[in-house]
Design a protein around this nucleic acid. Structure first.
Lengths: 323, 323
DNA sequence: AACTCCCGAGATAACGTTATCTCGTTGCGC
DNA sequence: GCGCAACGAGATAACGTTATCTCGGGAGTT
């Protein structure tokens, strides 16, 4: 920048003003500076800029996986972009240690905020950052042990949507295979399924098989559901991985039993029959996360808020099969 | 850091030495500093650190899309991580303007290097950065107008693999539907298909329909292939989007005509029949990109290198259908 | 005992920006 | 003609680190 100033024959500070769009730079000076920048191929150093100004205009996103499709991340990125913010995403790979590394890295980079898809059992380690004014927004699951703004899917509503859809198709024995109940979403969805069973006790019975996602367990659960004296005529799966595992396990039998999956995924419509799913409002979740971040940044003392985003049932065939 | 130094009763520089793992810090001093850091909840400022040391230990990855599945990005991230580097990925969204924004942002952040999946027609704008010693590695497509290290898939070999596989299944009329020939991979694969036709002229005839990926065009191409007096008995698609578009268009007819897709994608095995594909070596591409980056960083004057990564045929059923 | 050498630690000067303060001009009202 | 505000521009001091140089003192050598 000093070189540019010398080349243009102006003061260092004037180049800075020009770069920052300060209107107090005369047109003749601006021209000379423009030319000098061109000549020297100079670009401002973002690190120094951030260091001096104290703002990074960057928020960190600690998500489960960067490299897989991640519709929420896309929405976060777009909303942030629209607000003039840069998003730096890091993978936690479903690992507590990795999550922490990501968060530490974001803090060391003095990012303006953190959007996190929580993995760790306890997020107390975030407290010092929160206390020092770092806006933190959790999505998909609540962050345990700290109070932060949160965006969740309407897990219970989504399960109810699917359950009632199957009941409407005439199913009276519905099986549920879902994620580990120690995981928040796994717990919520299994509980919701139980509630549906209670609410429809006269109309439907059902079986629940939550646990870790692992082909062998899925296969066992599936076999139990189908080999029952009164076998299930419909299956509700608690997340995309489970859905896929169930479809793999069903093999050629896919289509012989009704199936509704919680969480949509790419190409689910290409299956035969098409896969009926409860879709989460990922775009809205992402947008809301950024909204909450901005609200918090604008007013650090506002009460923490939890937003629940509704789900939608997308019928594609597999959920409309008769018992 | 000054606060930590005061709290620990040592000099600023000693805290710095401790943080950087300098062995010349005595154990008693180290203890006091550790305690002071703990007490004050201090974390070093990465921006200042980078500014002063001149190194960011960060490389930028400008890829087509962050939010969709991106196996190369995963490999890049993992290899970089293993080398103690952080990857910051940005989406180009297949847009020249966005690509340029991403690259500019990376330069302003003074990243140690750039890994790019080139979109722009001309990458001459990278020349000043390259000249100033910024290592740049392109993958998937070459960067036009500049000489940089490059990692490519063996597009021609992959098309040949698929073509010969179909010929071996007895197909004599094979159609090709691919991407726009103005795009490098679209061009390479279409040319390779033509070469295969020439090489097998006695054994096979075929039709080529490259162009932009758009459902209407795919439908038209497909109809032409199938309504020919001597219709195609097998189709080879030039990339994943085309493959998916073709499968959508085929609808219930999927499985009535042999299909091999270039580029694998998640859940292709769930289709009935399973989708036979030519898989690219994404993990190796990613690893190689990081290798080339490191080699260039270590020796800026080394000659630029282009590495071609082989492809593999994965038979899953759709490509093994008889004519 | 004098000399060198090395080692652990501190003082000071950058790194490339922006914030703050200062200063000389100019324009305008009275 | 004077004062005063407004304005455009420059000088200088940070921001939070690390690089370089300096220095005191203890161990080893002759």
């Amino acid at each position: 920048m000093a070189d540019v100033a010398r080349e243009a024959g102006v003061a260092l500070r004037t180049v800075s003003r020009f770069v920052n769009g300060d209107a107090t730079v005369g047109e003749d000076f601006a021209d000379r500076i423009r030319r000098a920048i061109e000549t020297l191929d100079w670009q401002p150093d973002e690190r120094a800029r951030q260091l001096r100004s104290g703002r990074t205009r960057t928020i960190g996103a600690a998500v489960r996986n960067i490299s897989d499709a991640h519709p929420v991340l896309r929405a976060v990125d777009e909303s942030a972009r629209a607000a003039g913010l840069t998003v730096v995403a890091m993978s936690t790979e479903d690992d507590e240690e990795r999550e922490r590394e990501a968060v530490v890295s974001m803090c060391r980079r003095r990012m303006d905020g953190i959007i996190i898809e929580p993995i760790a059992e306890n997020h107390g380690y975030l407290q010092p950052e929160i206390d020092s004014g770092m806006p933190v927004v959790a999505f998909d699951r609540p962050a345990t042990g700290v109070e932060v703004d949160t965006v969740l899917s309407d897990n219970r509503g989504g399960i109810a949507l699917a359950f009632e859809h199957l009941v409407r198709q005439g199913h009276r024995r519905i099986g549920y295979i879902g994620d580990d109940e120690r995981i928040y979403t796994g717990h919520e969805r299994a509980v919701a399924f139980h509630e549906c069973l209670r609410a429809h006790c006269s109309a439907a019975t059902g079986m629940v098989h939550p646990g870790p996602i692992d082909p062998a367990r899925i296969a066992a659960a599936l076999n139990r559901l189908r080999s029952d004296p009164e076998p299930a005529t419909a299956i509700l799966t608690g997340n995309a991985s489970t859905t896929v595992a169930v479809i793999r396990q069903l093999g050629g039998d896919f289509g012989s039993i009704a199936l509704v999956g919680f969480d949509d995924f790419a190409l689910a419509d290409l299956l035969r029959p098409g896969l009926t799913v409860v879709a989460q409002g990922e775009a809205e979740i992402g947008r809301t996360a950024i909204d909450l971040f901005q609200a918090r940044a604008a007013d650090p003392s506002r009460p923490v808020q939890t937003v629940t985003v509704p789900t939608t049932l997308i019928p594609r065939g597999s959920g409309e099969l008769a018992p």
